[in-house]
Design a protein around this nucleic acid. Structure first.
Lengths: 256, 256
DNA sequence: CTTGCAAAG
DNA sequence: CTTTTCAAG
């Protein structure tokens, strides 16, 4: 079973860069997308339902902003849009698809990088999301939360950790929050598979960040312990650059 | 003496397309620019004063909108920004440079194509500009008014005149206004030199207008009768496309 | 630096 | 369809 997580920084932009030519070659069973920056009427047929996939979306109310989606080869038993928290759900950050005993979630955690106001919203999200994660763990299902978490956990997870201790995405409070989440039992699959591999998934568009590989690992597949044990391997696709984020590809034993 | 008029549709965009590589090769004495879409702080040194030229500007108050400029090899005796009509002058549409007995003016007449409101402003401009033109003729100087007049005068001046009788830029009132202006004694130099040559200077960005040469002659050098008699030849530069308008190049006898 | 927006042409 | 601005990342 192959699951991909990709922040597209605009699904239309990614499409222009060949994302939908690449998709059929991936062999993915489920693809979680973030930052669609498009609403349903803005999307082409190929974006709404690529050949071989069903498409599900949770766009933001604001045009051209945020928005998450899930493509799946199999028809899910249920799809849930949003967390049931109105001020979060208007921003299109959470979508869940259930396949028998497995739930796949596409998450786009708020960025705090554009100012104090947005950082406050990010902290508020974290505060309300942790109880949700705790509760999901109690459900006893297998779950993978794919997405752009906008937090690098440890020094290995970004190139210049010392210079970023005061920057959103590597703040002590954010890192501690992730530590607490993992303490609950959730598993950071990449780090578990590859304890020593940085695994950057995002590079700033400014300066020469990509060329110099000044990256951050902020896209994760965070799973329940049972699903983590089924993780076989993971990779970050960098041959074609669809976005400022690279797709995170993970293979798990078993069928969807 | 060579004088060029060019609507750049963004001086920065035109620069990216090589306008400032082309400029030194033109041998122009004076270059009149329209639609700079930039204010002074947005312009590079090469834009403010290209090698061999002095630069003068009358930008709009609104960022990224309108704005005219003049480059001249010789230092002018005087430069006048605006018409002295505040609601026109805030839009950066008129700049005059005096060289001894000759005045060169860069004009960007309002477009009415974006709606009724702007067409009303265009008509108001025409109404107030005609007395100004009449008055200038009475000054007894030699004058060339270079620029984007946003009016095609006669059927020969645009590809599809029948289909545009109700469209801004070829409205009967606009055409009559130009006729009245020429009746005053002002001379449309291109049409006088080349009675049969369409002389399109603008092609819509929409559709395949440029490829199909669906153009309009809306950029003119309109001169006093004395200067018109010195006109030798004119051409429209289309080898490189800097903008949706092509530069209008005219040679006159004598020195600046 | 980039996406997507809106205004203007 | 394009340039530019603006918000957001």
């Amino acid at each position: 079973m192959r699951i991909i997580s990709a922040n597209l920084n605009g699904i239309r932009s990614a499409a222009n860069k060949g994302f939908f030519d690449w998709l059929p070659q991936t062999g993915a069973d489920v693809v979680c997308l973030q930052e669609l920056k498009a609403q349903l009427p803005d999307m082409s047929e190929a974006m709404l339902a690529p050949a071989g996939y069903h498409g599900f979306f949770h766009p933001a109310e604001k045009k051209g902003y945020s928005g998450v989606g899930i493509y799946s080869r199999k028809q899910p038993d249920a799809v849930i849009e949003g967390l049931g928290i109105p001020d979060i759900d208007t921003e299109g950050r959470y979508l869940r698809a259930d396949f028998g005993p497995l739930s796949v979630i596409s998450l786009y955690l708020p960025s705090g990088s554009s100012g104090e106001e947005r950082q406050t919203i990010k902290f508020a999200f974290l505060e309300r999301f942790l109880p949700h994660m705790r509760q999901m763990l109690a459900e006893g299902r297998e779950i993978v939360v794919c997405g752009d978490w906008n937090i690098a956990h440890q020094p290995i997870d970004l190139k210049n950790w010392k210079g970023n201790l005061k920057n959103s995405g590597f703040l002590p409070e954010e890192r501690a929050w992730l530590t607490e989440l993992l303490g609950l039992g959730w598993v950071d699959v990449w780090r578990t598979l590859y304890p020593e591999a940085p695994g950057y998934t995002w590079w700033s568009n400014r300066g020469q960040a990509y060329a110099k590989d000044v990256g951050w690992r902020i896209d994760y597949q965070i799973t329940t312990p049972g699903l983590a044990q089924r993780a076989l391997s993971a990779s970050i696709y960098k041959e074609i650059k669809f976005s400022d984020h690279a797709p995170l590809i993970m293979d798990y034993t078993g069928e969807l």
